[in-house]
């Protein structure tokens, strides 16, 4: 009637559970390094992107905040002071000699000075910046709507991505770059921003011009912009994955 003491059985079970656990963990680390699961990870990213495209319409806007919500200092991340000689010369001259080249699959390749960009119709928005690390910061951005600029240069039908080439090399040696597809590029809140909180964009935050793509994580929002290139594929650029961090294992779809 009284149950047999199954102390030994219990200890054996606990032991095997622990052993299985550590084996699984070691296995997971090995799986992470070997790339065996990469097709599954790729499928999950594709699923995420598709779900986002289904749920967030072309026009669905990121939340815009009130002036009271603006953070006292907008936290800079990544490169905060490019050391490249060409960039430092431009900065020393208050970016008067700086030009944004727009080329690739466009009808009329053009270079824009900061004055020329400031003369174009602008948009000001108070939005939340979400870093892939997990923190958020709210700031007010003013700039040219990217879609307006693209309309000016005339995008060819074959173009599928806008590639953003930057001035800075992040420690690691490669030049920073990023890419957006045409749907995010033409989003009404996607800006080439030259002002933060009503003042010229500080160097720490990407002077003279940075990208704002408000439905994406921070690493998409390239700083120190030098050139926009319209392409049908980014396979030949950098590591071929569409961005500096993407070449280092982060996903191209940065909506989550």
């Amino acid at each position: 009637m009284t149950r047999p003491p199954d102390e030994r059985r219990r200890r054996f079970l606990a032991g095997s559970l622990l052993a299985t656990g550590s084996l699984l963990l070691g296995g997971c680390d090995r799986l992470s390094r070997s790339g065996t699961l990469q097709p599954l990870f790729d499928a999950s990213e594709a699923l995420t992107q598709r779900a986002h495209r289904l749920l967030a319409s072309r026009e669905a806007l990121a939340r815009e905040y009130t002036p009271a919500d603006i953070a006292p200092t907008f936290r800079p991340n990544g490169t905060t002071f490019p050391r490249e000689r060409a960039y430092m010369r431009l900065a020393a001259g208050h970016f008067r000699a700086w030009r944004l080249e727009v080329d690739g699959l466009v009808e009329r390749p053009q270079a824009f000075s900061l004055e020329a960009l400031r003369a174009l119709p602008s948009r000001t928005q108070i939005t939340r910046h979400d870093c892939v690390e997990g923190w958020s910061c709210i700031g007010q951005w003013t700039g040219v709507v990217l879609g307006d600029l693209l309309a000016r240069v005339g995008v060819k039908d074959e173009a599928r991505f806008v590639v953003f080439h930057c001035a800075d090399r992040f420690p690691g040696g490669d030049r920073y770059y990023e890419s957006l597809d045409m749907r995010e590029a033409y989003h009404p809140q996607t800006l080439l921003a030259y002002a933060l909180n009503g003042a010229p964009l500080p160097i720490a935050n990407g002077a003279p011009l940075r990208l704002r793509a408000e439905r994406q994580l921070g690493y998409k929002m390239a700083k120190y912009l030098m050139r926009l290139e319209l392409v049908d594929s980014f396979a030949h650029i950098g590591g071929g994955r569409g961005g500096f961090w993407e070449d280092r294992g982060y996903r191209w779809w940065a909506g989550i």
Partner: peptide
Amino acid sequence: TMSPTMDAAWPWLLDVFGGRQSAR
């Protein structure tokens, strides 16, 4: 709620949880 694209798709998420950092 931590996904910026989901916040654009379902802005009510931010209101329900009192913001992205509260949600986190």
